[in-house]
Amino acid sequence: MSELDRRSLLKMGAAAIVGTVIGNGITLYAAPANAGEAAAAAGGNALEVPPKGKARWGMVIDNNKCTAQCTACTAACRAENNVPVFGDERYDGHWIRKVTLTPERGGPEKHLPLLCNHCDQPPCQHVCPVAATFTRHDGIVMIDKHRCIGCRYCMIACPYKARTFVFKETTEWTNKDVPKRAHGVVEKCTFCAHLIDQGKLPACVEACGKSGEAAMLFGDLNNPESAIVKYIRAVATKGVREDLGLEPKVFYTGI
């Protein structure tokens, strides 16, 4: 059974338990579990890292809480990963950015943070001619910048526009422990793989819990006991452009 099947099954199961199906695809859910509280219960900044090859990292973003003005996640990402802002949008890098969705049929605008979805079927990886983009043992899609030749096929393949090209190198080091990028490679979110390997949460998730709206939840999708799996089981979540069948690992509620 593919992961997608299992997920939809889980959702159906969750609906049966906590929700009542009122009619034609409308489901009434019990009050959503609180993503932030679940993160706090999971032990603040600590992350339980299973042995190599066992984890499958994923993220839930509760968009009912995320507000338009808050930039906690984007600012934290820039500081952690040396992602520059030059004040010129042709050069600025973005690993996570706030996008505004305007529903076609009217209704309130939605503001959500969009980042690399670390797809299980990453189109960026499939088009990479030099195998610079690869999937790590824990499902994180990463770019080996030592290999990247800057052809930008991956940027065209990515439906989330999660990747940016380094047109201009930054000269500032906000975090000296993390490498910056040289001109001519493509960069994107790594789920803060360097922090995960140390058993820490990604910078955006931590910032969202501390100074943001506590709308992000991060954890191991393979572990049935993890807060994120419990949350996904209890609350209806949706991936952005799930219809493309790329099986993204960033789930949203309220979009």
């Binding site: 190599k52 690869f134 790590r136 043992h137 824990d138 994180i140 990463m142 080996d144 030592h146 000296k176 422990d177 793989a193 360097h194 390997d197 140390q198």
Partner: peptide
């Protein structure tokens, strides 16, 4: 070591360039 760290995620190695 670079390939082991970047591609395999085996961090905490003795000879990190930093």
């Amino acid at each position: 070591q670079r390939d082991l760290i970047v591609r395999e995620g085996e961090r905490g190695r003795k000879y990190r360039i930093e």
